[in-house]
């Protein structure tokens, strides 16, 4: 097992598996966020349900673990890869032999995402705690906190930029998961690549819709 984890192929598997979990999570998170269009109660009740069910500790700790492993391996792999190519080329490759920018910049997009996730958790999960009552049940008023946060245009811009970066990361990451886990076949790989691009656009656009909507609609 240790041999597997130390090998270049094994690290690829772990990167792919943790990436699979994390990209599944962002899709679920994005669809949950869309409840903002339904109203404050639906939004808050969904938040309450997500944090008050028996699977919550398992899911949240798995996410933390996957994120730490994904980030740690990303940094380790980048360090190893830099030492494998100590001096750079003077010129960039020709168009016929160049590859997507998204695939070459995973460590940069990933680093921005790490900073984003930390600030995101600090702002919302560990931010101000307001309560609201719906039919005798007291739940956390995340909607109020979120509306307050997105009154600041600079904060909205940071969110939009960070979420575009997430889209770029997913654009390479999602289809790359399948390659790393050994799925590549002329029959289905073109579809996987196409799904990866659509997935990245849908997740990024779905997330971005929330701060923009809140900023434009819930003025002061």
């Amino acid at each position: 097992m240790l041999h597997f984890l130390r090998s270049s192929v094994g690290k690829k598997f772990i990167m792919g598996l943790s990436g699979l979990g994390l990209s599944g999570f962002v899709f679920a998170h994005m669809t949950g966020n869309l409840l903002v269009f339904k109203g404050a109660e639906a939004y808050n009740m969904y938040g309450h349900f997500m944090t008050h069910n028996p699977a919550y500790p398992l899911i949240s700790w798995s996410l933390v673990l996957m994120m730490l492993v994904h980030a740690f391996l990303g940094i380790l792999l980048t360090k190893e890869n830099h030492s494998a190519r100590p001096s750079a080329y003077a010129v960039q490759a020709s168009p016929a032999k160049s590859v997507t920018t998204a695939s070459k910049t995973m460590i940069f997009s990933g680093s921005i995402l790490l900073v984003f996730i930390i600030t995101h958790l600090a702002t919302f999960k560990y931010g101000n705690h307001y309560d609201v009552e719906y039919g005798g049940q007291t739940v956390r008023d995340l909607h109020r906190l979120m509306v307050e946060a997105f009154q600041n245009p600079a904060f909205v811009v940071w969110y939009v930029v960070a979420l575009i970066v997430m889209g770029v990361h997913l654009r390479h990451g999602v289809s790359s998961i399948f390659q790393s886990l050994g799925f590549n076949h002329p029959r289905y790989t073109p579809t996987i690549k196409w799904i990866g691009i659509v997935y990245a656009i849908v997740v990024a656009a779905g997330f971005i819709s929330q701060p923009i909507y809140v900023y434009l609609v819930h003025q002061g």
């Binding site: 130390r6 090998s7 270049s8 690290k11 690829k12 792999l77 190893e80 890869n81 030492s83 494998a84 190519r85 490759a93 016929a96 032999k97 160049s98 590859v99 997507t100 695939s103 070459k104 995973m106 390479h172 790359s176 390659q179 790393s180």
Partner: peptide, 18 residues
Amino acid sequence: MDIEGFGNCTNTGACEAA
């Protein structure tokens, strides 16, 4: 391959193109 000091694969596809 790992002992020789080659880097890790990040699925960019530059190898296939070259």
